[in-house]
Design a protein around this nucleic acid. Structure first.
Lengths: 342, 342
DNA sequence: TCACGCGATTTGATCGATCCAATCAGATCA
DNA sequence: TGATCTGATTGGATCGATCAAATCGCGTGA
């Protein structure tokens, strides 16, 4: 291992002072062009890179953002956060920032982690995921003036006094309904989660609005409220198919539910949500969240606060898109029976 | 925001010197018990936590490990690395270490990232995943004496001069075959990837060994070599079912392939690999990798080198376990036709 | 009595960057 | 010619910890 280069060793070789080298890197406008050129040459030659720790000592910037890794909930939807994480890391990298991870069992422990990361100067800000009703984390952070942004709206009616980015779930299910209507479906059911979850209710609302707008029925019997899972989706679909007037298509609140629903019948058209790898794999039409833009927006919000550029909280609501695959098709002609697809 | 506490502010309040406070935290045996007690009380009272940056300046330890986030390959197997990552972060946390992420398009860029992280002192070591034939990363790191460990064997015959942890894939497929034999299957096919991938060949070998040991055929027609994917799995299964003497069970190299295979026929028994959330969701018998122990072992290996406790490279090969679900069952009695399962 | 040893504690130097104030060189102008 | 200004560069202090060496207090043995 060669000797580690420092600001001084570069300075000596370029026959300038420490500070000039620093200026070349941080405030080039203060340095005469030819001097800067000479210094830059030495920097390249030696492969010098400033020590982050030393820099952090004076600037009080760790150039790190904290992000909690969610516990594995066993669902097939976990991949969403995985891709979001990837996008955040990518976006951060372009701003010379990095992401440090931590795990926590619950909101309380997550707050403990914030506290530690802040006290020790390990992170400059945070990106939160999975916001929910009565989320104590945002209040804690806001109270202390910590830079952060959430991927997910503050669902409680409480304070919106922080920046957030979210995807318009209602717009997603609306798009799914409109797609099905265009294919000729006139009776479209919804398989979602029990009321009370912000995300779930939002997606149900989109289905209802679009169905109403198209003059389609939104009767209670066309709505299922079950916990997330493939088996639950299958059961809900089976129940609806047993109705006197069964739906010809189902809009589902998740790919898990949708995966179950497609197993119930081959003639049924089904849409999922999140466009997980499984949806891609089994040919499921699904609502895709724009995770890359979402991550970029979150990052911008946090870094604006870190950099003191923020005036007031920003809110970004992104519109998802529908990825159409084989699981949606025109309804079978009346009177036909279930059968194998070609 | 209250004033940030430092070693000095704690020292003043406890009426001792800076260094004594430091010793209480790092070398308690040097401090008289009653003094330590008094200092500790002040530390708790003020909620003091040492600055990592300042500590890093002298100790030259960032207390961070670098890990590359794999690009989303679109497969349903990505969840494996996700869970591994979670386990690594968890294990690191217990040793006061954290994980910083970075992304890279290929091995070359990954090496660039190593270089940067090391030069700037952002990471003390690395955990690598997805090792493959002719992997240039391990050589680069080993050459420089960088602490690292890989999750995955060095598949090239090349140097084993570094620590690694891996899961015995052959043992996994052997277990799958044995399970199927026990259920009464006498003709078991294998759906795997094209030769050349270390992981894939390993899994195929396990199937062959176990089949041979049980006196079962391992004819070429019972082996499929296709790229990973649900559609590919389906096609391979369909082809085998069309044989004059079709297999009654299929061992697959991945859950993606297995998911396709179960779609081909209801009477066929199928096993997957990796026990992904999808396998859980659709009731697929699958080989489960012990990711938590694997992560713990990787971490121990890296930190042993970082801490100078390592004598020589260590190698750990863990045995996977089979999670049995509904996709495996006794073979249908001869002469019966395909039908719906109950 | 005094030098000595030893555990406990303190003091000064240092890691490598940036901040801030001082200095220097050269152009401008009275 | 000499005072003044401005842009470029430099040297000292500092961030908050640890390392290394010095110092202090106190019991022991010659």
């Amino acid at each position: 291992m060669a000797t580690r280069h420092t600001l001084d060793s570069v300075a000596e070789r370029a026959r300038v002072s420490r500070q000039t080298v620093s200026n070349v890197l941080n405030s080039p406008h203060l340095v005469r062009p030819d001097t800067a050129e000479r210094v830059r040459a030495v920097i390249d030659e030696l492969g010098y890179r400033p020590s982050r720790a030393a820099r952090q000592m004076r600037t009080r910037r760790s150039m790190l953002l904290g992000l909690r890794l969610e516990p594995d909930r066993g669902g097939i939807n976990g991949a969403v956060l995985d891709r979001f994480l990837h996008a955040v890391v990518d976006a951060a990298q372009e701003q010379q920032y990095r992401v440090v991870l931590f795990t926590a069992d619950d909101d309380g422990h997550e707050i403990d982690s914030y506290s530690q990361l802040l006290d020790t100067g390990e992170a400059d800000g945070f990106v939160l995921t999975s916001t929910h009703h009565g989320d104590p984390r945002t209040a804690w952070l806001a109270e202390r003036g910590v830079p952060f942004s959430t991927f997910g709206r503050p669902w409680g009616a409480a304070d919106q006094h922080h920046s957030w980015v979210d995807v318009d779930g209602a717009a997603g299910t609306r798009a799914a309904v409109e797609h099905l209507v265009e294919l000729g479906h006139r009776r479209i059911g919804f398989v979602g989660w029990p009321r009370g979850s912000g995300v779930g209710d939002d997606r149900r609302d989109g289905w209802r609005e679009a169905a109403r707008a198209a003059g389609l029925p939104v009767a209670r019997e066309l709505q299922a409220a079950v916990h997330d899972g493939v088996a639950e989706g299958r059961a809900a679909a089976d129940a609806m198919l047993a109705l006197r007037e069964p739906p010809t298509a189902l809009v589902c609140a998740s790919d898990s539910l949708a995966l179950g629903a497609v197993g119930a019948s081959n003639v049924l058209s089904v849409t999922g949500f999140d466009d997980t790898p499984v949806a891609r794999a089994v040919g499921l039409t699904s609502v895709a969240q724009p995770l890359v833009p979402a991550a970029a927006a979150c990052l911008e919000q946090v870094l604006d606060v870190v950099g003191g550029r923020a005036d007031a909280p920003h809110h970004v609501l992104l519109v998802p898109s529908l990825t159409v695959r084989q699981s949606t098709h025109p309804p079978a002609p009346a009177g036909s029976t279930r059968g194998e697809r070609a």
